[in-house]
């Protein structure tokens, strides 16, 4: 299951970030988003635009294309 498969507001755990673009992966790592992190989708922008995810009290915008590469599991 990937991050784009879950509903707005639902909290999930990240299981895999390996398929992502390396730069995006590194920046997310800087922000403390890696395997094991709990994330929640806060906002989904229109027309395939970015999504805002919340983790550890911070709000981060990423592209949907990148979110599609983040493996997650329900908790």
């Amino acid at each position: 299951m990937y991050l784009t498969d879950i509903h707005q507001g639902e909290e999930v755990r990240i299981t895999n970030t390996n398929r992502m673009n390396e730069l995006v992966q590194r920046r997310l790592l800087d922000l403390g988003i890696l395997e094991g992190s709990l994330v929640r989708i806060k906002h989904i922008l229109p027309l395939g635009g970015p999504i805002a995810i919340e983790t550890k009290g911070q709000l981060i915008g990423i592209r949907r294309r990148d979110a599609r590469m983040i493996g997650v599991e329900c908790i």
Binding site: L28, A52, L59, G61, R63
Partner: peptide, 11 residues
């Protein structure tokens, strides 16, 4: 080749 977008949304 690849574009990049990650942004922090401050309160």
């Amino acid at each position: 080749s690849s574009s990049f977008f990650v942004i922090e949304l401050p309160p």
